[in-house]
Design a protein around this nucleic acid. Structure first.
Length: 851
RNA sequence: GGGCGCGUAGCUCAGUGGGAGAGCGCUCGCUUCACACGCGAGAGGUCGCUGGUUCGAAACCAGCCGUGCCCACCA
């Protein structure tokens, strides 16, 4: 080691991530390690497509967790020498991004309409250029080993070609069509949204009962509704065909109050006899159920609420009011006419826009849809056959259940930011042209064309992510080398929205599954158990955590707290990671500053050496297995426990004298163990491991591309493990005895061994002299007979002895009770019974000695 | 309405048929020549409740209570 390096090691007693991380990351980038050549086949390579974050965003805890998991597996496979690609990119996130820019405009008192479409979209691109790359920089802070030179954007030039190709092919197959249909209208974003972007919330409304007079009769038909303003668009009243109360009215008409329109009484199975009066007003224009019933009975579809949320001309005297205002006015008018027979509070679930948070207004409008059933079929099969493996397994069924009930997808959005739908209309001859690139003139009449105004749902483009990012529709080297990707880690909330659609499009267009494994990770909640969200103010900023504790600490913490169930964010786990980084640094200082100049190699000379090597290799095997099966929490905690407990607390303490002596064998073994520990931890804690590696004598190049340790099972030694662990337990018992017997910390006590000689370290670490002479034994701890000396407090020793006797009596009693149970002896496995017998014997013997 | 989870030490969570675990916090003792982001020793739990299966249950089954999420067109 150079003198300067040695000096730095000697002087730096605390690991400082802020000083290290930026420097190390630059070294990785300069090395080009994250930018693989597009060579080989997907079967032999390793690749991942990052779930593309929104350009609007900043890194949140979900990204940090997901990034930590992906990076762990990506780095592990890169170290294994695989040609490894982690594709990075961002999503244009239609509604979200447009909303942010509109909000900016609003500050200047302008709306997007003031700018016009072209200028507005230009503005969004400017915004994207300025802020869109923030999240990429933040992934670097996390240490994510993405290919930053292959960054993609769902709206970049090549991506548009992929989207248009897909749209055209789906259209040609007859899957994509345009129709007037009931959609979820989001008054907030002024666009239709898909079913998956709707969330239901419990709301307290008023349930109004309205009397509809029956034509040519004194009777009234009373209907119940929470939206009285929609009665203006009623085109029927429905009753259940089996409902005798109304059987005679079916086929007759009622007169709609306020409006005066005659509407038929129809019979439909959908109507619940039990609910309210059993009569249901039918408003095909403003209610999804009524829409279905209306289509079935060929009812007129009237729209009284427009896309702007205001009452239309159809609403007559109420035209121009907002729906909420109209509700008040309609109720007032009905009351005036004596048609309101009841009002009662009513709690029910109501759809809201996931994006804008506004209450969904169901409307009929002309939209583009995509039939999903044919696309779903093969996507169901690959999951059924486990060609795409979903972990944890309960999500497989959730996926399959949803896919089997899949409905058409409304893919058009009334936005300006996004993939403008590749459809052109000719007003001259009414021709509709779908094309991958803009046609000049109408094929049929040569007339002028105008492009469809709507854009595609953001998820339409994200659905193509795994192959579009690799250059599809061109047959690129990247596509051949890295598709299908190896795995996908994701939050469950986008299982349908994104994962399912990638599987469908992957099979349809890229001819193969997009990934072999889907790992659905847990959700990290706020410290108080609420959802982390910006609007609730419950978010925890990963970058702040990185600033304070370091990226390795955050990564370790997130992986350690992740599990199959949702967990609350734990500062303690991040601090545990920070402490681990510091411990790694300091243990490495001890090793690197004191070892002799030797080749790192396992060179055991005693049982402790064989023990630590056995534990090391066992840990490598187990941690590797856990990482490969997405059991990140146990993987990092097991690595932690091996390193801290076994290596630092015990082995380093045991070998210190040999180390300070400059013994070559132990130096070689320690350097070997350190090299392997650094390699094992690098995927989860890349910065600190890389930094320490720079001081390691075996270093040739960066740890990021050094070999990942493969467990050497020849070094597993169960006998050595048993011996040393026995010695450790004995040491702990001796220390505990000293403590309770009131012995001074630094004092060495005389004792003799009666029985099997424990490993040599026990004497030194417990501060007992095992060849003591003279005095009487006063206590018996395993094979150790403690001899009396003036360092002992007689009363404390007696008390300690009595306590042990009580413990032993309890143990003996327990064993006797268990073995006295005939059922146990007869039915329990022989080895379990034997074990109990052995224990009982030992406890009895010890009690005998102490008596 | 249907489905999936969860309820274990003060806190956050592991453990899923043979003697209750981790991290943090707490108590006591240590400025021991890698680390006080440290070292050593401790205290702390009728494993939500009630029944059942079993020689044996925190774990398996049933019911109940509490709690979270997803899906669903009862006005």
């Amino acid at each position: 080691m150079e003198a300067a390096q040695r000096k730095r090691l000697e002087e730096t007693t605390r690991y400082d991530p802020t000083e290290v991380e930026g420097r190390i990351f630059s070294e990785w980038m300069d090395g080009g390690y994250f930018h693989p050549q597009a060579e080989g086949t997907a079967a032999e390579n390793f690749s991942v497509a990052i779930p593309p974050p929104n350009v609007t965003g900043v890194l949140h805890m979900g990204h940090a967790l997901n990034g930590s998991m992906q990076d762990a597996l990506v780095r592990m496979n890169r170290m294994r020498g695989k040609n490894t690609l982690w594709v990075l990119g961002t999503d244009h996130a239609g509604i979200a991004t447009q909303a942010v820019v509109e909000k900016e405009l609003k500050k200047e008192g302008k709306s997007r309409h003031d700018l016009g479409r072209e200028a507005f979209v230009e503005k969004v691109w400017e915004w994207k250029a300025e802020y869109g790359s923030r999240i990429v920089e933040q992934y670097k802070r996390l240490g994510a080993s993405c290919d930053y030179d292959r960054e993609r954007f769902t709206l970049d030039e090549g991506y548009v070609r992929a989207v248009y190709r897909v749209f055209k092919q789906l259209f040609d197959k007859g899957y994509i069509y345009r129709d007037n249909y009931m959609v979820n209208w989001d008054p907030g974003s002024h666009s239709a949204i898909s079913d998956l972007e709707v969330e239901n919330r419990e709301v307290e409304d008023v349930l109004y009962s309205i009397d509809y007079p029956v034509e040519d009769s004194d009777r009234v038909l009373t209907v119940a509704t929470v939206r009285p303003e929609t009665m203006l668009a009623d085109t029927a009243v429905a009753v259940n065909p089996g409902d005798e109360r109304y059987a005679d009215l079916v086929g007759k008409h009622v007169v709609l109050p306020l409006v005066g329109r005659r509407i038929p009484v129809i019979a439909d199975e959908h109507v619940d006899v039990e609910f309210g009066t059993g009569a249901l007003k039918i408003t095909p224009g403003h209610d999804p159920n009524d829409f279905e019933i209306g289509r079935k009975h060929k009812l007129e579809e009237i729209g009284v609420i427009g896309p702007d949320g205001r009452m239309t001309e159809e609403a007559g005297e109420f035209a121009g009011l907002t729906a909420a205002e109209a509700q008040v006015a309609v109720v007032e008018a009905l009351r005036g006419e004596g048609r309101l027979s009841a009002e009662e509070p009513y709690v029910h679930s109501v759809p809201f826009s996931h994006r804008s948070g506004e209450r969904i207004e169901p409307l009929i409008s002309l939209q583009w849809f995509c039939r999903m059933d044919e696309l779903a079929r093969p996507a169901i099969e690959v999951v059924e056959r486990d060609e795409v493996n979903i972990t944890p397994p309960q999500w497989k069924r959730v996926y399959l259940d949803w896919m089997r009930e899949i409905r058409p997808w409304c893919v058009s959005r009334q936005l300006w930011w996004g993939h403008r739908i590749p459809v052109w209309y000719c007003d001259a001859c009414n021709e509709t042209i779908v094309a991958e690139s803009e046609p000049q003139r109408c094929d049929a009449c040569g007339g002028e064309l105008r492009q469809e105004e709507d854009v595609l749902d953001t998820w339409f483009s994200s659905a193509l992510w795994p192959f579009a990012t690799l250059g599809w529709p061109d047959d690129t080297p990247e596509l051949r080398a890295f598709y299908p990707t190896s795995f996908l880690t994701t939050a469950r909330e986008i299982l349908f929205l994104w994962v399912a659609r990638m599987i469908m499009t992957g099979l349809e267009f890229a001819g193969d599954i997009p990934f072999r494994d889907v790992y659905v990770h847990s959700v990290i909640q706020a410290r108080d158990g609420r959802r982390m969200s910006k609007s609730l103010g419950t978010g925890i900023d990963p970058l702040e955590e990185i600033d304070v504790h370091g990226a390795d600490a955050l990564r370790f913490g997130l992986l350690a707290m992740s599990s199959t169930q949702d967990v609350r964010f734990s500062d303690a786990k991040v601090e545990q990671g920070r402490d681990l980084a510091n411990k790694l640094w300091n243990a490495s200082r001890l090793i690197l500053l004191n070892t002799a100049e030797v080749e790192p190699a396992p060179r055991p000379t005693c049982v402790e050496d064989r023990w630590i090597l056995s534990r090391l290799e066992g840990t490598i095997a187990s941690v590797t297995d856990k990482l490969e099966t997405y059991d990140f929490a146990h993987a990092v905690q097991e690595a932690y426990s091996f390193f801290w407990r076994d290596l630092c607390d015990w082995y380093l303490e045991i070998v210190k004298p040999r180390l300070y002596d400059g013994e070559e064998e132990v130096s070689a073994t320690l350097l070997y163990a350190l090299e392997r520990v650094l390699g094992l931890l690098h995927p989860t804690m890349p910065f600190v491991s890389e930094e320490i590696w720079s001081y390691h004598p075996a270093r040739q190049g960066h740890l990021a591309v050094h070999s990942f340790p493969v467990a050497d099972l020849a070094l597993i030694d169960e006998a050595a493990e048993a011996d040393v662990e026995g010695g450790i337990r004995l040491t702990q018992r001796l220390r505990a005895w000293r403590d309770l017997a009131g012995v001074a910390v630094g004092a060495t006590l005389p004792a003799v061994i009666d029985g099997v000689e424990p490993p040599a370290f026990v004497s030194r670490l417990s501060r007992f002299e095992f060849d003591g002479v003279g005095a009487e034994p006063v206590a018996s701890i395993g094979p150790v007979r403690v001899l009396d000396s003036d360092q002992l407090d007689g009363a404390a020793v007696a008390e300690r002895l009595e306590k042990r006797r009580q413990e032993l009596r309890a143990e003996v009693e327990r064993g006797e009770r268990k073995l006295g149970n005939e059922g146990f002896v007869a039915k329990a496995p022989a080895e379990v019974v034997e074990e109990e017998r052995g224990k009982l014997e030992r406890y009895r013997a010890e009690l005998e000695e102490l008596a």
